[in-house]
Design a protein around this nucleic acid. Structure first.
Lengths: 142, 142
DNA sequence: CTACATCCTCTAGCGACTAGAGGGGCAAGC
DNA sequence: GCTTGCCCCTCTAGTCGCTAGAGGATGTAG
């Protein structure tokens, strides 16, 4: 409910997005250029802070910049069908699921490596051996 | 058991590392510069192919370049204790575990988003709502 | 001898920032 | 008024691990 707007540093504190990153978002057109004070300093009002929070949250959820750009554009037109937003979120979900699967396979390999390490000399170290020879992996699919 | 060595294209085929990437690895000193033919073309022998396979496998397991450099140096000195290799693999394992945890939390959020989408208009789309308001997340820890 | 594939070097670009230089503005205390 | 010190400004360059493309040389099959 502030009317005056805040400086970039305050916007950074409130949104959790660092000031240089905010300027970067403006530069790439993800955030509209905010009004400036006489001295040339940016002044952010609630609308821009809200948009910034949206971007930050989407980034935390792993959305890339281009999908976020689309989502922001959608948010600006509430009467449009939300099929696009749904598709973007589903694509992101599929990506996350795929990553989890492949990381879990890696976890198995790494655990085998670490468990097999005899804490002796490199010559007989399982970590090095496994890296050198893919055939020693439990799953060869990576 | 080839004696002659192979071209960069053949090395790429055998190792699964693309030719420009092999040159890149040479440039950053991860691979030793291989001997050249009269015409200036690289010729890779078994030692280099082995090193390349090691690098590829480590990259597939998500190790970064600098740790791989260390692991390669260790591999070259089989009499050293393998504590360093062990520590690198453990750090990588911890990293993978952390990533899995955070991706699983994201998966929950994304599923809620996608399930909650009414397939209607943006105005009431849960995907957009959740992105705009972190408070609507199941877990606020991200 | 001529195609054609493959190779060479070099530079620039990707995504999403981050770091640093070099300078200007603004509020508080003296 | 003046200084101190923090915040802000723009601009360029760097990060990581490649990838793409230009422009040219070399090797090989027919």
């Amino acid at each position: 409910m502030t009317k005056t707007g805040v400086s970039i540093g305050e916007a950074a504190r409130q949104s959790g997005v660092k000031a240089p990153t905010i300027r970067y978002y403006e530069q790439i057109g993800l955030l509209p250029a905010p009004p400036r004070t006489e001295g040339g300093r940016r002044h952010f009002d609630d609308g821009e802070l809200h948009r910034l929070a949206f971007i930050r949250h989407a980034r935390e959820l792993g959305f890339e910049i281009e999908p976020i750009r689309t989502l922001l554009a959608l948010q600006d037109n509430p009467n449009q069908p939300c099929a696009t937003a749904d598709a973007i979120a589903k694509a992101r979900l599929a990506d996350v699921e795929q990553r989890i699967r492949s990381l879990q396979a890696l976890k198995v390999e790494l655990e085998l490596m670490v468990e097999g390490c005899s804490h002796g000399r490199i010559g007989g170290c399982r970590v090095i051996e496994v890296l050198a020879d893919h055939g020693k992996c439990a799953h060869t699919q990576h």
